[in-house]
Structure formats: structure tokens, C-alpha cells
């Protein structure tokens, strides 16, 4: 960790703590989150390939867990939001996003790793752009460009409000949705990890360099650290769930006139 306290004084965690290049420096340096990303992707791919190699009708324990994740994405998110009739082409996207986000978020509280990959905004941007492209392409392919533009303005609006709403909706579709999608994931992971760092480093500093009173105070600080770690588990799942939920909602809008 870069923010290791010195006797000169406590250095709070900062964005610089998230910059951890392994090889080289600069725009194309191999960084620790990149390495983690490749590692987790490889692990997920391995599980998805090997885990589905011999599927049986009566699942074993491993298959049961895999099916649990897949069933959650497929039924609780995809089918319930998009609808059973249209969900099939998006299942792979939802499954990939959910597993990737979940595993990488959990990396943030995994001992020895403790780095949430998605606290680097480059990765959430990739996912958000992918979702953005998918729902725009789906929209245009299904309803046509004109239909898509028409869909932006709800019917029954007074004439003077139409341009305003149109611009706002277009902005929502093209800018706000992908940006919020990326920023939400990034912000949650970044803030959560910063908080963890703060309590870990602060507790350590108080214990090692503080006076008698601060040494005592460091105990509840570490307690809060554990509490926040537990909270981060919740946030990891929640963010993965929210990401696929919003993806499904955006995709479901393509088929909104269907039901």
C-alpha cells in the first residue's frame, strides 16, 4: 500500500492508492487490476466451460451452485424483466456481466487480493458501452430508427413539450444511461474500497503511532473495518444484481409495446 503511514503524520487514502502498475508506466502500463481482470475472466471461463461439460438432470453440488447463479440471472432478472419470449438472445450477455461483476467485486474483499477491479473506471465503462450498444442496436433493429425516435416521446403530450421531452429522452438514452451505469459501479467499488483503506490505515496508524488513547480507539476502528468488509460483500452482490437488472430494464424497453 502506498498510503503507509510515516512518523511524519497520517496520510489518508487517496485515488493514488488505486494506481498500481505492475509493468511499465503510463497509458498502456500493465496494472494490477488488468492482471486481476484477466485472472478472474480466465477463472470464470474455466468454471463455465468445465462446469457445464457434464450436465445432468439431477444436479450435483457444483452443478447446483452453477445452476443457482444461472437460474438467478435467467429467471429472476432476465425472464421477469425482459419476458420469457425475448430473453433468450440476451442470456449470454446477462450471464457474462453478472458473473464478471460479482467475481471482481468480491475480489475487493478477498484476502491477499483485496482489489475491486471495477474501482478503476475503465472496466465499468467497457460493460456500460456494451450494454448501451446492445440496447440501442436492439431498439433500432426491432422498431427501426424512426420507431425508436418516436418511442422516445410518450403519446398524448402537448405539442410545446414534445421537443423538450425528446431532447431529454434522447440524452437519457445516449448519455445518461451508460454514464450512470458505469459511474454507479465504479463509485460504489471505489468509495467502498476507499472506506476500507481508511479504516485499515487509520487503525494501523493509531495503533502504531498514536498515544495511549488512540491505541484504545484503534480497536473499534478495526471493528468498523470488519463491519464495512461485511457491508462490502452485500454491496458486491447488490451492484452485480443492479447492473444486470438495469441492463434487462433497458433491453426490456425495446419490447415494451409487446405487452
Amino acid at each position: 500500500m502506498i498510503g503507509v503511514p510515516t512518523s511524519a503524520g497520517f496520510v489518508p487514502p487517496s485515488p493514488a492508492d488505486f494506481w498500481q502498475p505492475l509493468i511499465g508506466d503510463g497509458g498502456f502500463a500493465i496494472t494490477r487490476p488488468m492482471f486481476l481482470m484477466v485472472l478472474t475472466t480466465a477463472a470464470i471461463c474455466l468454471v463455465l466451460v468445465l462446469g457445464t461439460r457434464r450436465l445432468t438432470l439431477v444436479p450435483g453440488r457444483g452443478q447446483w451452485a452453477l445452476e443457482g447463479v444461472y437460474g438467478f440471472v435467467r429467471n429472476s432478472v432476465g425472464r421477469d424483466v425482459i419476458g420469457a419470449a425475448h430473453v433468450r438472445p440476451y442470456l449470454g450477455l446477462l450471464l457474462a456481466i453478472f458473473t464478471l461483476v460479482l467475481v471482481n467485486n468480491v475480489m475487493g474483499i478477498t484476502p491477499l487480493v483485496q482489489y475491486p477491479t471495477f474501482s478503476r473506471i475503465g472496466f465499468p465503462i467497457v460493460l456500460a458501452v456494451a450494454v448501451w450498444a446492445v440496447y440501442l442496436v436492439a431498439h433500432v433493429r426491432r422498431n427501426g430508427l424512426i420507431g425508436f425516435l418516436k418511442h422516445l416521446v410518450p403519446p398524448g403530450l402537448p405539442v410545446f413539450a414534445v421537443p423538450v421531452v425528446f431532447v431529454l429522452e434522447l440524452l437519457t438514452f445516449l448519455v445518461i444511461r451508460p454514464v450512470t451505469l458505469a459511474l454507479r459501479l465504479f463509485g460504489n467499488m471505489f468509495a467502498g474500497h476507499t472506506l476500507l483503506l481508511l479504516f485499515a490505515l487509520g487503525g494501523e496508524f493509531m495503533l502504531l503511532h498514536g498515544g495511549a488513547f488512540l491505541k484504545v480507539v484503534s480497536v473499534p476502528t478495526f471493528a468498523i473495518f470488519f463491519f464495512i468488509t461485511a457491508f462490502e460483500i452485500l454491496v458486491s452482490f447488490l451492484q452485480a444484481y443492479v447492473f444486470v437488472l438495469l441492463t434487462s430494464l433497458y433491453i426490456a424497453e425495446v419490447y415494451a409495446d409487446d405487452h
Binding site: 498502456f28 487490476p33 488488468m34 481482470m37 464478471l100 472496466f123 465503462i125 456494451a130
Partner: peptide, 21 residues
């Protein structure tokens, strides 16, 4: 500010995962 290297790595990884899925 996104790091370009990370965007590239993320894209590649995500595409690989999508293909597998």
C-alpha cells in the same frame, strides 16, 4: 479518467467471456 490500457484489457476479457457464455 479511464486508463486506456485497462479499457483494452477489459474489452478483451469481456469479449472472451461473452464468447464463452
Amino acid at each position: 479518467i479511464p486508463h486506456p490500457g485497462e479499457i483494452i484489457a477489459g474489452t478483451i476479457c469481456f469479449i472472451v467471456l461473452l464468447v464463452v457464455a
